[in-house]
Amino acid sequence: SKPLKVGEWVFAIGSPFGFDYTVTAGIVSAKGRSLPNENYVPFIQTDVAINPGNSGGPLFNMDGEVVGINSQIYTRSGGFMGVSFAIPIDVAMEVVAQLKGQGYVARGWLGVLIQEVNKDLADSFGLDRPYGALVAQVVEDSPADQAGIQTGDVIIEYEGEEIDFSSELPQLVGRTKVGDKAKLKVVRDGDEKSVSVEIGELPTDESASALQNKPQVEKTNRIGIKVRELDHETLDDLNLDGGVHVIQVESGAAREAGIKQGDIITRLNNQKF
């Protein structure tokens, strides 16, 4: 599935609505898609007609090679709307190998929370264009923490593969074998650095501690938000050194930048609070 290109013709075989051996065709719309319920699978997006009964069926290229397993669709009506997703066959076979070898699937884990790098952030970090994954938080005692990755680092390369969008990083890390060492290239304080990380196993419980809203003094500022200080208990639960909780967003610069109620701001102009 790796050589598959956007725009390439593909076709699917399945049993939509119980009609066995149905063949539908279309093109590859995109590669490496992350879905809200699955960040670690780089889905192939197609416009092949996939309906209930197609899931689990093969997706072929024009040479008759299986390039994916049809998985799910995006729909508002319950029927086909031109947005279908397939699991790349390379990923599926990696899962098969793990199931045969150890009986369960283990995904690689770095231990960072990341966000997209937009143009303004790229300028502030000295990047020539928006790319990479900005480290918003490092989980304590995680592989990233032990390797010295810091909040504010921008990961621009993983094992020699450039990170154009932040959503690409979890997919690459998740497919790395637990215990393997991965070489990352990060931008820190305007300089590029190479970091070697021993990839850990993704914890089964990824649920974050709930933010405890306790009565505290409100603060306002000129960017159009109202914030509340975080108490020590909440900071410990979220593994943060400092920050403020956004409780209200008014019209102004903050809203235009995409800040929302419930966000936690930990840095201003890349400086810790």
Rank of each mutant, 00 (worst) to 15 (best):
L230K: 00
T220L: 09
F17I: 10
G148K: 03
T220I: 10
G101P: 04
D236M: 13
G18L: 02
K177C: 02
V138N: 07
Y104W: 13
Q248W: 09
V23K: 01
V139Q: 15
G101D: 11
V197F: 08
Q115T: 06
V83F: 12
Y21I: 13
F125D: 07
K2I: 15
Q150I: 15
A136D: 09
V117P: 06
E65P: 04
I264D: 09
F60L: 06
V246S: 12
A257S: 08
V187N: 09
Q146T: 13
I265A: 04
I69V: 12
A97R: 00
Q45Y: 09
S167P: 06
P88D: 06
D191G: 04
S1P: 10
G56Q: 01
V10S: 03
G53P: 01
D263V: 09
G174I: 02
S55L: 00
I223S: 09
I155Y: 03
Q137I: 07
I259N: 11
Q102V: 00
S1F: 12
D237I: 04
G26P: 03
D141H: 14
S15R: 07
D120Q: 11
E159Y: 08
G53V: 01
V178M: 09
D263Y: 05
S55V: 01
W9Y: 12
D231V: 01
A254Q: 10
I50D: 00
N213Q: 13
K226G: 10
Y131T: 14
I44D: 00
Q115V: 01
G68Q: 03
T151G: 13
Q137C: 08
Q271I: 06
V154F: 05
F11W: 07
D231R: 08
M93A: 05
G7K: 03
D90C: 09
L169P: 03
F11L: 11
E218F: 10
S194W: 14
D20G: 09
V197W: 01
V112W: 05
G148T: 03
E256K: 12
G101C: 06
G190H: 08
D164H: 14
D189W: 08
L113T: 14
V217R: 13
Q98I: 00
I89A: 13
G14P: 07
A147Y: 04
A257F: 05
K185S: 05
V154H: 03
F19Q: 12
N37L: 10
R175E: 01
G26I: 01
R188H: 05
I155T: 06
Q150P: 14
